[in-house]
Simulated scan of single mutants.
Amino acid sequence: MLRAAAGQLSQVIRGSFGVSRLAAIGAVRNSSHSTETDAEFDARYEAYFNRNEIDGWEARKAMNDLLGMDLVPEPKIVIAGLKACRRLNDYALAIRWLEGIKDSCGPHVDTIWPYMVQEIRPTLTELGIETPEELGYNQPELALKSVYEL
């Protein structure tokens, strides 16, 4: 009962001062909006991956954030991420990063992924990293033939 009375009292006070909850929320959301160009975005993530003191958690966090966005990272960001994996001595993370990038290509994987591999091939060779296809990860190891193929 006390909670209900306090809630009604707060609504009366807000109404008397002219404070609208929705207007306050909109003002906060609009004030935190930043305008960052694509070049600034790329430079920010490239610099983040190029830090010498980056640890495994930070690398995974940045990679997860990038893969969670509705975009395919630029090849220079992918190269910086692969070099960070090499500094961390984490080959598995590099392979998962490549798998995630291929997955983020979506329905355009036939056009975007070959371009990406072409652009990052020198770095892959330099670091000794193979693509998921070269490792055979694109084919399941113990998959059975479909009943329609028998």
Rank of each mutant, 00 (worst) to 15 (best):
N52P: 12
T131V: 09
L98T: 01
D110R: 14
E40K: 14
Y48R: 10
T125S: 13
M116D: 00
L98N: 00
N89I: 11
E46L: 13
V109C: 07
V78W: 02
I79E: 09
V78Q: 11
E58Y: 01
D103Q: 14
M63W: 01
E134N: 09
R51V: 09
I101E: 04
L124I: 08
E134Q: 15
E133A: 13
D70N: 14
N50G: 04
A59T: 08
D70M: 08
E126L: 11
Y115N: 12
N52G: 08
A43I: 06
Y115P: 00
D110V: 12
D65S: 09
N52Y: 10
A80Y: 05
F49N: 04
T111W: 09
K76H: 11
K83N: 11
I120S: 02
L82W: 02
P107Y: 12
E134W: 07
L66R: 01
D110H: 14
W113G: 06
Y48W: 13
D90R: 11
K83A: 06
K102L: 07
N89Y: 12
E53S: 14
R51P: 01
I77R: 00
N64Q: 14
A80P: 09
C85H: 06
Y91F: 12
I95C: 10
A43Q: 14
D110Y: 11
Y115T: 13
D65R: 02
G128M: 09
A43P: 03
Y48Q: 09
L93I: 02
A94N: 03
C105L: 07
P122M: 08
L127H: 06
R87S: 05
A92P: 00
E58A: 10
I120L: 06
W97S: 01
F49Q: 05
A92I: 13
D90F: 04
E133L: 07
E46N: 09
S104D: 05
Q118H: 12
E126C: 05
A84T: 06
K61G: 02
A62P: 00
E99S: 11
M116K: 03
R96K: 13
V78T: 13
T111P: 05
V78M: 14
G100Q: 03
V72K: 05
C85Q: 03
P114M: 05
D90S: 13
M69R: 15
L127Y: 07
I77L: 05
R60I: 03
G68M: 02
D42V: 14
R86M: 12
E46C: 11
M69V: 04
I101R: 03
T125F: 09
M63G: 03
R60E: 06
A47Y: 09
H108A: 11
G128L: 08
D42T: 15
E134K: 11
G128A: 08
L98S: 03
V117T: 10
A39R: 15
A84N: 05
Y48P: 02
I129E: 02
H108T: 09
P75M: 08
D90Y: 07
F41Q: 05
E58W: 00
L67D: 00
M116N: 03
T123N: 06
A47H: 15
A47T: 15
P75I: 06
P75T: 07
D55M: 00
E53R: 14
K61P: 01
C105S: 09
R60W: 04
R96G: 01
A92D: 15
W57L: 10
W57N: 09
M63H: 01
S104M: 04
D65F: 00
E40H: 13
R51E: 11
E119M: 14
R87E: 06
I77Q: 01
A94L: 06
I112C: 01
L98Y: 02
L67H: 01
W97T: 02
